[in-house]
């Protein structure tokens, strides 16, 4: 059940330019799944809306969650000043999360671009757990492709704990020069399915790739949100077929999403 609660900051540190890594103690961690998000409420009363932030990792003891976010406005600027021990208001767990069942027995490629990379940590962790517990023939082979601007490859080592990681950098300083798509070609990756999080142009290209390769691809979408719980209809995405809830060609990213099979959505 979704709820708002007071949580507590356990730790916070910058891990890259304008990117912060914060652990939060919260009971919501018990229900958290890869691909879901929480909403963090700024204290500044002039900025009203909670900020949707993907979970990067859930602690093994399920008592805390990790978020890695970029400072992109007044709200996230406020969050970046939070100190360990501070109480914060959060709402969760929100969104559908990644469908993990479909990965069984597959060669799975995780693709993250920029600030889309953090949710892949928890996704890798959960896929690795499923794979280790699965019957023979159901194990999952994970590879990861990460796209960065430059050699500041945040979270790379976290992801290397779970899978072989390939890197693309826009400035060519590490790995394949160019985008994640260039890396997939350069390293000749041939997955059975894709999970991807990143900017819309990247997801647009992944849709083309998934259609060309004729493989499933699950993408996590972003949109400006207000309520976070499906009430305001602010954060919709165009869908190919009429949505079962809205009865029009729109789905709510905060509720029916943020993860969609790429063929369902018009991106």
């Amino acid at each position: 059940m979704k709820r708002k609660e007071e949580a507590r900051v356990l730790s916070q540190r910058p891990i890259s330019a304008n990117i912060y890594d914060m652990w939060i103690e919260t009971k919501l961690a018990e229900e958290a799944k890869a691909g879901q998000f929480i909403a963090i409420y700024p204290r500044d009363r002039a900025i009203l809306l909670p900020r949707p932030i993907s979970i990067c990792e859930v602690a093994d003891d399920k008592r805390s969650i990790r978020v890695v976010y970029r400072v992109s406005g007044e709200g996230t600027m406020e969050f970046s000043h939070y100190e360990p021990g501070e109480p914060i208001q959060i709402m969760g767990m929100l969104g559908n999360g990644f469908n993990l069942k479909v990965a069984k027995g597959k060669k799975v490629l995780l693709i993250g671009g920029g600030i889309g990379i953090p949710p892949l940590v928890e996704l890798s962790r959960e896929l690795a757990i499923i794979s280790s517990k699965s019957l023979i023939g159901n194990d999952i082979e994970i590879s990861t492709v990460l796209g960065y601007r430059d050699s500041d490859t945040y979270l790379r080592s976290d992801l290397e704990a779970y899978s072989r990681v390939y890197v693309a950098t826009a400035d060519g300083s590490v790995g394949a020069p160019g985008t994640v798509l260039d890396a997939i070609e350069a390293f000749d990756l041939k997955p059975d399915m894709i999970y991807a999080v990143g900017p819309l142009p990247m997801l647009h290209n992944i849709k083309k790739l998934a259609l060309d390769m004729d493989i499933p691809a699950y993408v996590s979408l972003e949109e400006h949100m207000a309520c976070g719980v499906g009430a305001c209809l602010g954060c919709v995405v165009r869908t190919k077929e009429p949505n079962a809830h809205t009865h029009v060609n729109n789905a709510r990213i905060c509720l029916e999403g943020p993860v969609f099979e790429v063929r369902e959505v018009e991106i």
Partner: peptide, 22 residues
């Protein structure tokens, strides 16, 4: 009958409030 509403972005935050065009 069902209405599809407007294209996104449909919401924006402003000082002390928000704009919507759902």
């Amino acid at each position: 009958v069902p209405w599809e509403g407007n294209p996104t972005p449909r919401v924006a935050e402003v000082y002390g409030g928000m704009l919507n065009a759902i």
